[in-house]
Structure formats: C-alpha cells, structure tokens
Amino acid sequence: MDKANFSSAYRKELRTKIREVAMQHFLAKGIRAVKMDDIANALSISKRTLYELYDNKEDLLLEVLKEAEESRHNRISAFAEQVDNNVMEIIFELYRMHAEAYDNVNPLFYQELKKYPKVTNYLDEKDTVDENLTQAFFNLGIEQGYFRKEIDFAIVAKMMRECVRYAIYNTDFTTVKFDYLFTNVIFLFFRGFCTDKGIEAVNRMCDK
C-alpha cells in the first residue's frame, strides 16, 4: 500500500473510531456535556487531528446519527427478508430494537437533539421519508389481512410519532421504561387498527 492509500485508509478507520466513541459518550452523558476534548482524549489523539476530520461537534453528531439510522435500516431490512415481510414480525422486531436502545440512553441525549439546527433539519427530512415508508408498510399490513383498511393511517402514524416524541423529549418521562411507553401508548394505537387476525397475531407474539 502506497503512502497516499495508507493515509486515506487510516483516516477512514479513524473517522469510524471517532464516531463509535462519540456515540458512546453522547448516549451516556447527553450531548452538551461531551466536549471534543473528551473524544480526542478517549482515542489518545490530538484535538487538532479530531478537528481535521470533523469541523465541530454538531457535524460529528450528525454523522453519528446518520450512521446509526443506516445500521437500523440494514438490520430491519435483513430481518424483513428472513420473515418474508410479515408486518407483525417486523413491528415486534422494531419494538425490540427501540427497547434495547431507549432504556440504555441518558434522557438528555434525546432532549438536547433539538438544540442543534443541522440535526433538527436532518430529523425533519427523515420524518418526511418515514411517513412514506410507514404508509407503504400499513398498505402491506392491509394486504396481509392484519390491519383494518378503513383506518386513516397517515393520521394514526402522526399521532403515534408525536406521542412517543413528547414522552422522549419531556422531562416528566425520564424514568419511564420503553416497555411501559409501548404498553400504554403505542400498543393502544396498534391494537386499535388491527383486524381480528392482527389481534390474534399480537396476542401470540406477546405470549412468546
């Protein structure tokens, strides 16, 4: 490997390590409490080296969020293939994914996301994309006989998202476990738009 290629490979690997360490720090402490110095020190690199790769903490945070979203997307896509796109299986896998993440995160992380304009814009854009994906998902659930076709899923999806977002961003809910949120908020919507076949599938999966 020539010097230029080695330098490029090293920088790419270092960027990956920086994102991994940054994510660990952000999730554990919240965003504002983490300094670029903390990340540099954890990796035993100079702050100058860190700033050569990431101009500021917000740019780093944005890259961390995009990478995490890509990882979640890849995981659920692979799972969907394994279960032949069964919407009920996918929903419970999504629940497991979010439960794993939510209960191990400092609530400050979610509450402080909205303080960063680039991150807010990214999340708003992602919401728009998610709305289209959610509608396609609901349509698939109708085809499979699990969801009621007379429901306005655009409204349901928006209400579910806003309820969860309120719980995540509101300090009154900082001690609430994801299981509790799912049972008392999401699960109520979920059972409401299921057909009898869908409710039977829910009951079976809850009994596992």
Rank of each mutant, 00 (worst) to 15 (best):
L14S: 09
A78L: 02
E63A: 11
V185C: 03
A68L: 14
S7N: 06
S77F: 01
S7T: 02
G145C: 08
R11Y: 05
N184P: 04
S77G: 07
E52L: 15
G30Q: 08
T49R: 11
F182W: 15
A136N: 10
K12A: 10
Y110P: 03
R15P: 00
T183P: 11
N170D: 07
N74I: 03
A167F: 03
F187A: 10
G192C: 12
A4N: 13
Y102H: 13
I45K: 02
I155E: 06
Y146C: 00
F26P: 01
V156T: 04
G141M: 03
R161Q: 09
V156K: 06
L140T: 05
V87Q: 04
L123Q: 09
E20N: 07
N184F: 05
D152A: 13
I168T: 12
D124W: 12
I45E: 04
T171I: 15
A154F: 06
M160D: 04
A42G: 07
H98S: 10
I186V: 10
Y51W: 08
K12W: 00
Y95W: 09
F137I: 01
Y54H: 12
L113S: 04
E131I: 08
I151E: 03
E100D: 12
M97L: 09
M160T: 00
T174F: 07
K35F: 05
L123A: 10
L27G: 00
R11Q: 05
Q24H: 11
T49C: 13
D172I: 04
K114D: 06
G145W: 02
R19C: 06
Y122T: 00
E200D: 13
F92P: 09
I90E: 04
E93L: 12
G30P: 07
F182L: 10
N184S: 02
Y180H: 14
K29A: 14
I142K: 01
R15A: 05
D2G: 00
K158L: 04
N184L: 07
F193P: 06
L53F: 12
R161L: 07
T120P: 03
N86F: 06
G30Y: 00
T171E: 15
T195W: 00
D103H: 10
F178P: 02
Q135V: 15
P117D: 01
Y10H: 07
Y146R: 05
D127R: 12
L123T: 09
K17C: 11
D38P: 04
E13W: 12
R11W: 01
R204I: 13
M97H: 10
I39C: 05
A201D: 02
F178C: 08
E100R: 14
Y95K: 10
V34T: 02
K126L: 14
D130M: 14
I90V: 07
K35L: 15
K158Q: 02
L181I: 04
E150L: 09
L188W: 15
E125I: 11
V119I: 04
P107W: 01
R75P: 08
N85R: 14
I91A: 13
I39R: 01
E112L: 02
Q144M: 10
Y166L: 11
T134A: 15
K29L: 15
N121Y: 11
L181A: 09
V156I: 02
D172M: 15
I90H: 00
I91Y: 13
E143Y: 14
N5Q: 01
K158T: 08
